[in-house]
Design a protein around this nucleic acid. Sequence first.
DNA 1: CGAGCGATTGAAAAGACTCAACCACCGTGG
DNA 2: CCACGGTGGTTGAGTCTTTTCAATCGCTCG
Lengths: 229, 229
Amino acid sequence: MLDKSHRHIACENCKSRDNSLFASFCGSDVNILNSTKSCAFYKKSQPLFVENSVPRGVYCINEGKVKIFGRGEEGKEQIIHLAAAGEIVGFRAMFSGETYKVSATTLEESNICFIAKNDFLDLVDSNPNLRNGIMKELSIELAERATFITNMAQKSVRERLASSLVILNDIYSGEMINLSREDLANFVGTATETLIRLLKDFKEEELIRTHARRIEILNKEGLLKVAGA
Amino acid sequence: MLDKSHRHIACENCKSRDNSLFASFCGSDVNILNSTKSCAFYKKSQPLFVENSVPRGVYCINEGKVKIFGRGEEGKEQIIHLAAAGEIVGFRAMFSGETYKVSATTLEESNICFIAKNDFLDLVDSNPNLRNGIMKELSIELAERATFITNMAQKSVRERLASSLVILNDIYSGEMINLSREDLANFVGTATETLIRLLKDFKEEELIRTHARRIEILNKEGLLKVAGA
DNA sequence: CGAGCGATTGAAAAGACTCAACCACCGTGG
DNA sequence: CCACGGTGGTTGAGTCTTTTCAATCGCTCG
């Protein structure tokens, strides 16, 4: 499935670009992008960047999935976002002038391209479409995080899990959700044991089915109903 | 203290502008700003905008404080951010192309200026400094919300309250924290009763003192220690 | 001075976490 | 091919935090 070499992937042929921030790029822009970026194959559980380090550029996911997470006092991860193919990861830090406040690690084997900070900022400077796309993206994520905070503060773990499963179902479009129980717990914001017990409940209620670690959604409507209250 | 009329406040004399996103403005920019904006006096608990409505412009706080909050399923507020003098409120929605996902309401009597969407976007277009400031601000807030989420997911209410009191102490720079117990609870993300019980604990531990509803911080270091674990 | 809302307290119940043990799968090496 | 070790998944029991509901208190504003 994945090309495990470090071979260059041409941006002009990159399917993932179609629904990315670079979707508006055409002609010369794509060529610039293509010649400045570098490609890399990442194994599962490899970090793209870690908290508190200095941002050097952005990461463009050609194939694969990446978790973005912060860490609490005892080092426990809290997953803030799961990024899939087409997403650009780490661009917030390009503008903040700060070190990373979160870490990014692959969840599965991935092909990911890298664009150095200066090259990226040049593209942003010279490309109003890209710039507007980024401002829009930043704004939308800000709103998403507001509801994330509200959910975290007000919903029960059961409700959050139901909601998370629906979200993950979209991210894993079609395929079954394939996350470790720990990662899933760190996304929902709960203890692994609590998560497992609730998954069992959902199985008994025939909302989901599990195939080893993978989770199949049987009743999305039902899950939304659980998430709703 | 506050000028309760709707009299125009000149941007060039606005003290609050110094530490705002408009701080870089000079000469002609300030004049444009000054002539396009309108000023208004807001009483306590007046909404600037509400969730799901269409954004019409941005709000620039000359004096006063504003809470930004989302609502959970049963309508319970979750305060996402408290904005004080100098802050510009509602500019995320200028770029997202969506309706507001949060609401904004004054916490006290406030003087607030309004800049219509098109005027604001024109300023952003023509002013790279402002634009960069906004991108930076969006990025920083995004990072702040990531830690907000992590705290919400992993810290106990006691820890969150301690942390919140320190944050509020900064926002109310010097003055005592003056929030209803309900608002404070909605900021911390807990029930009002729980909040009150914990405040009592903190009083017994001589970390804080209360004067009617107002809260005086006695031992900031101690609070940070409580928040830390 | 009284009404009413916000603040406070109490008691009971529920939700979630922790700790400890056990199971199951998987890859390794003998 | 199978025993072994290790990691990740699962279960149970007990505890603690936090919520909920109900009742009372006490400012503050007419």
